[in-house]
Structures are given as structure tokens and as C-alpha cells.
Amino acid sequence: MNRHARRLLLVVLWLVVADVFVPPLLQRAEHARYERGGAFRFENSDLFALGPMVRYLREHPHGDRPRAVFLGNSVVFGYGIDAREALPAQFERFARGRRVFNAAVNGQEMGDSLLAGKAIIDSVDTLFVQVIPHHDAARPILGKLLPVSSEDAQRYGLEQFDPIEARLRSILGRVWRLYASNDRLQAAWFGTSTRQFLYLHKRNWIVRRAAPPPISPHISPVNLVSPRNGTGDPTSISQSMVALADVAAAHRKRVVFLHFQRAGDALDPNVAGAFNARYAPHAELVIVDVPPALYSDRQHLTPDGAASVAAALAAHEGLQ
């Protein structure tokens, strides 16, 4: 055996040995990220970590603590504010004893929330979904990231792996665990892909930043309205919302839909009442009326605004 053949053999042996350590490494990293870690939010508000998070939740339907997952767009994600200041993290502070996941992604629509919600409904105690009226689309890439039914794939025009490629991936993933787990490891370690993480933190390579100061938000009253009766067609708001409510009812889980009431985008309480009358107790549509001073721009909440909504929501859920 010549020098090059020996080197090739050494590389293969190294991969075989390294593969043994992948499952415990993944287990430790995911447990730290999804069960014990601080405020959970996707590092870059992109979809990379959504798939790994969904796979973890599906494989671990019961966590160390009861789980709440927030789905929505940049309003829930906390555009422009620290992860600890976003609505879900603030909710975790008020609803003690719960593990809260901020699974919101900038630009997310109701179709995205429906697909993600369906995939994790059995592993979650309460799902909080931001209502984005008349935005029922889903991003095509979700077909490759989440387990979706063929009906949903067709309905939303989702991308799918080539069947041969998917089969080969599955076979290789069974014998090479590092190959199967590499995206999950990246998501658990970095909350996004490695390259996004390096890009986002490139300045920290040169200048070490000081630890962020503790947050101490000022709570203002926020009005949450949940009409019990009414007439109207809830599908006029969002077909995906109604579909997710049906899923919650079928799985005997609870989904709370949050509609941020704003000028020009006001929800008819009659329609909300009709929805609540039909789906209670499994689904509830709550109208969130936030004072204008708690918005940083036309739609995004300030840290105090997110904390105020979180406090009102925790009280509404009877968790305080």
C-alpha cells in the first residue's frame, strides 16, 4: 500500500471514529439551546434554524418545561431590538416555568405559520401565532425544511427534494451521522448557519464586546380583547388561520392568534367573536391594542411595548 492509499484510509478511519461522537455532541448542544438556554430566537431571522428546531421538537415531544412557541413576522421576532427584549422572551419572564421559543422570521406569512405550527403542534403546549390578515402565502423552501403533506406542498407550491436525491440523503444519513446532523449542529451551536454566524459576529473577532446590560422594561397597560360571540366569516381574515385552528382542535392543543390592531388594519370584533365561538377552547383570536407610543415605527414594538404586550398576554393566559 503506497503513501497516498494509506492517507486515504486514514481519512476514512478518522471520519468513522469522529462519527461516534456526533450523537452525544448533538444531544448536548440541542439540549443547551432548546431546553436550558437564554432567550430563544433565531440568530439571523432566517429559515435555516427552523428545520432543525422542528426536528428537535418532534423528536422530543416533552421538554424539561411546558413549551410555548411564538410564530409570526418581524413584529414578534423583535426587529431592531435585542433577543431578550422581544415579545416571546419577555413572555418567558412573566410566564415563569415555561420554555418559550421565538420561532418568528422576518417576512413570515400565515401559510408559513400554518406549516410550522402543524409540524410541531404535538410537541407544544401553547402556540402563539401573529395574525397577518390576507397574507396566506408560504415560502417555497419550507417544503425542504419541514415535514409537509402532499396537499400542502401542492396548495402552497412548495419546493421538494428530487425523489432520488431525497432517498440517497436518507440512506447516507443513516450510515454517516455527521452528514445527517450537520445542519442541526450548526443551528444548535449558532442559531443559524455557521457562515451567517461568522458574518453577523465578524466585528467581535477584532473587538470583544462588553456583556449587554440587564433589561428593565417599563410596563404600560395594553388592551387585549377576545370577543366571545359574533357573526362573520373568519376565513375572510386568513384561511391558514382557520386551517391551523382546525388542526389545534383535532390535536386537542391550544393556539392563541394575536392580531395587532392598527389604523388601516383593524379587525372586526364580530368576526373575531364568530371565530372564538367556533373554536374555543382550542383556538382563540385575541385583538391586541397597543398604544402608539409603544411602537418604534408604524408596526414594530419598542422593548417596553413588547414587555407590555407580554405582561398582558401572560395575565390573559392566567400565568402570572
Binding site: H4, R7, L8
Partner: peptide, 10 residues
């Protein structure tokens, strides 16, 4: 065919 080519190519 050679291990050198495979190794170098890889």
C-alpha cells in the same frame, strides 16, 4: 488508476 490520483483529486 492510482491512489495518488484519487488522493490528489479528492
Amino acid at each position: 488508476r492510482s491512489a495518488e490520483n484519487v488522493y490528489g483529486g479528492l
